Simulated assay, not measured.
Amino acid sequence: MAQPSAVLGAPLDAPGPHARWDLVREQLAATGTVLVHGRMPGWLPPPGTGPGRLGELLGRDWQRYQAMDRPRMRERLLASRLLLRYTAAAAIGSAPELVDLAYQSAGRPYVRGCDQIDVSLSHTEETMVVGITRRGRIGVDVERADRRLAGTGSERQACTPYELRLLDAAGPEARNDVLVRMWTLKEAYSKALGQGLRFRFTEFGFEPLAVGARLTRPDGTTADHGAWTFGTFGVGEYVVSAAVHDTGFGELTDLSVDTVLDDGLLDALLGEG
């Protein structure tokens, strides 16, 4: 089997807008992929921030934010999009308010005008995770490590026959831990494919390894020959998984915005003639 096409490092901590973005750029340059995690309270603007500034920070998400009537949902949208914007800005050497986030039909985010990078976002409770790659496609997912899945019927709804055998072999004490890891891997892989939860989890499986995981068919045979890289990490009381697909088109070492955008598009985005 070919060697993994990307190296997944542990998620970097971004407690707020003044995080160590140089570390994000360094890891992206070294491995082609970076994962970042943050907590919602640290990513909420100071109280009293006016609608003009919020609209500037949220861009095309501003209308969606205004339409929400539940404060907690608005805070989650605001914090998660700011983490995504700041991380993407660090990756391409731009200002966060100049990062133009848009969404595909399935709700998958992307940075308009910068197709040299791919982004993914996941959040649960107050924990948020962003993944960025310059190698192809990426998907990330985060769940509580103690989320109860074993014994709830999730095994039959989300596992292949081979995965069920792996769960049985893990024993009752480790069964839920293994199942949570498999679940986050499946969600990350589905997001990287652009399918989200519409992709049937019983059609593909994973064998967790000491480092990463192996993508399998329902019978346990290998379903990938090196194009995919998977990783699972512990972040406090949460489990984070990522899936990266190397498209094989090479990579850019310089992702600064004035390099990855053509001059005309850059001028348009910056409002210049």
Rank of each mutant, 00 (worst) to 15 (best):
S154R: 07
G93R: 06
T33P: 14
V239S: 11
E75F: 00
D254T: 01
F206A: 06
G55K: 04
V244F: 09
G271W: 12
H225Q: 12
D69Q: 15
T259N: 06
G151K: 08
L164V: 07
W21M: 05
E237F: 00
A188V: 13
D22Q: 14
A268Q: 15
L270W: 12
D219R: 09
S154Q: 12
D254I: 01
G42E: 02
A102C: 13
P17L: 02
L83M: 07
S5L: 13
R175E: 15
S122Q: 08
L82Q: 14
T247I: 13
E237D: 14
D224A: 10
A95G: 00
P41Y: 03
V257I: 12
S80F: 09
T133L: 09
L44W: 08
V211I: 11
P51C: 03
L83T: 06
L121I: 14
R53T: 15
K186E: 06
Q104Y: 12
A30E: 15
M182D: 01
R60C: 13
A19T: 01
A106H: 13
R137Q: 14
C114R: 01
H18I: 00
W62C: 05
G131W: 09
T232A: 02
T247R: 14
H123G: 02
R64N: 06
V24K: 03
W228K: 01
Q27I: 09
R60F: 09
H225L: 11
T222E: 11
S256Q: 08
S5C: 13
R134E: 11
R108S: 07
E207C: 06
L166E: 00
E56Q: 15
L185H: 08
G93M: 07
V180M: 07
V235N: 03
G212T: 04
L28H: 10
P11G: 01
S105V: 15
R20A: 12
R25P: 03
T160D: 08
F230P: 11
A243H: 03
S80I: 10
L101A: 01
R165A: 06
R144H: 14
R175S: 12
P15H: 02
T160Y: 06
R108V: 08
A213Q: 05
R148W: 12
